[in-house]
Simulated assay, not measured.
Amino acid sequence: MLQKINLEHILFLDIETVPEKRSFDELDDEKKALWEQKSKYQRKDEYTPEEFYERAGIWAEFGKIICISVGYFNIKGDVRTFRTTTFHGEEIKLLKEFKNLLIGHFSSTKHLLCGHNAKEFDFPYIARRMIVHGIELPYKLNLFGKKPWEIPHLDTMELWKFGDYKHFTSLKLLTNILGIPSPKQDIDGSMVCQVYYEENDLDRIITYCELDVVATAQVFLRLRNDDLLEDTEVQRV
């Protein structure tokens, strides 16, 4: 049961990704051909490979991570805080820093990683990009040979499914129906590429990413029927 999980043993996270290059034209000829083949099913005849390239960030083979935001509970008696921080910069640097966090503070068997739709996106994306950069996978992301019950991952969307494999619910919708105050965001996921490449405003993206981490933690609290976080309990470190 969720109530039996120690909140301090969970690392909540969210990532933001963009296409590996600013535009399709910056790809070499081989990568252009591979992108055209990879994206053919999704874009069908509605878009050219060039037009569809702005969505390349959703594939780890054609995108890159620009930030990983994390959050964790700290509970001392009756005082509860939720602390957030973000790894950003060059992808190989932020991946190594995130790995060091996992090894240094969230490496035991009792620790869990949690995100929204993270089993389908965030966790495998991080693992794939680590492999691309030649970074040895930390235990929490190395799933080879593990049985399903040995995988240290929680997913708030999966928890909300209650076994319904066809159901998709966005984090924004879930916070709305569960009565969770909507995080004050001035962008959404579809705008991240533009804000990163055209506006060069990574800080704006980091704020958006951290707010999603807080929202994910709030959803998890509601699923446990716990009190939601107050604004004063959220600390950026």
Rank of each mutant, 00 (worst) to 15 (best):
G179R: 11
P148N: 10
R204A: 08
L7Y: 04
I206G: 03
F82S: 02
E54A: 08
R83Q: 09
V192Y: 02
D14T: 02
W160Q: 06
T175A: 06
I180Q: 03
E158L: 13
L154I: 09
R129E: 04
L113H: 00
E51H: 12
D203M: 14
R55M: 13
T85L: 07
I177M: 14
R236A: 11
K44W: 13
F62P: 01
T216M: 04
L112W: 06
H133V: 11
T232R: 15
F144D: 12
E136L: 07
I205L: 06
I103N: 15
P138Y: 09
L141V: 09
V234F: 09
D155N: 10
E46P: 08
L113I: 06
I126H: 01
V192C: 06
S190L: 14
W160E: 07
G63F: 00
R83C: 06
I103Q: 14
N200T: 11
P19G: 06
G104M: 10
R22N: 13
H116G: 02
I131H: 13
D78C: 11
L171G: 04
F82I: 00
I131R: 15
P124G: 07
K32W: 07
L101E: 01
L2G: 11
V18K: 00
W149N: 15
Q3A: 13
E158A: 10
E120R: 11
I103F: 13
